[in-house]
């Protein structure tokens, strides 16, 4: 799975946003985790937009009404590429609600529990543009963007990538 990533407001991410036609700067955020707040780029018939969004597609109000959280019943921060065409959750959004998630790097861990090694994986050149899907949830007029990152099987022979690495 793709479980953590980061965004650093540096020239690489600025270049990516420029290519995407976004006249804004990204906000530096380290260790973005499922349920946390990332930034996504999506497009409507009118424009492309960079917005804050919750990393998990299915979300709900927090019980104390202080915001929103991922649905505790489903894990929706990753969407396996192999299930995009079959899962009702992903299928409709694959057709018209695709997003790009700008990133500087992501993380994978190796080793046993208690002795895990964290790796920072980034592109040798430029920033990373993750493919994702999004939804704009309407909670009684409060429009809340949420997203998932699409994952692919790891490359054969890889000792770093987990079975559903960010791709």
């Amino acid at each position: 799975m793709c479980g953590r990533y980061n965004v650093i407001d540096d020239p690489k991410v600025q270049d990516l946003l420029t290519i995407l036609g976004i006249p804004l700067r990204a906000q530096t955020r380290l260790n973005i985790a499922p349920g946390g707040s990332g930034q996504i780029v999506y497009q409507t018939a009118q424009q492309r937009t960079l917005v804050d969004a919750i990393w998990s597609l299915l979300i709900e109000r927090k019980p104390d009404n202080t915001g929103y959280r991922p649905s505790p019943r489903y894990s929706t921060f990753n969407a396996r590429a192999g299930s995009l065409a079959s899962s009702p959750l992903w299928k409709a959004r694959l057709h018209r609600q695709r997003a790009i998630i700008p990133a500087s790097g992501f993380h994978e861990w190796t080793g046993e529990k208690g002795h895990k090694q964290c790796y920072h994986i980034r592109a040798a050149k430029g920033a990373i543009a993750f493919a994702g899907l999004y939804e704009l949830w309407d909670f009684d007029g409060d429009l809340v963007p949420a997203y998932t990152i699409i994952t692919l099987p790891p490359p054969p022979g890889s000792h770093i990538f987990t079975p559903r690495a960010c791709r």
Binding site: L30, C118, H120, R122, P155
Partner: peptide, 15 residues
């Protein structure tokens, strides 16, 4: 599944 661009993998203390 394809690595479309070269990647750098660096062990770090913490994310």
């Amino acid at each position: 599944t394809r690595i479309r661009q070269p990647l750098l993998v660096e062990p770090v203390r913490s994310p």
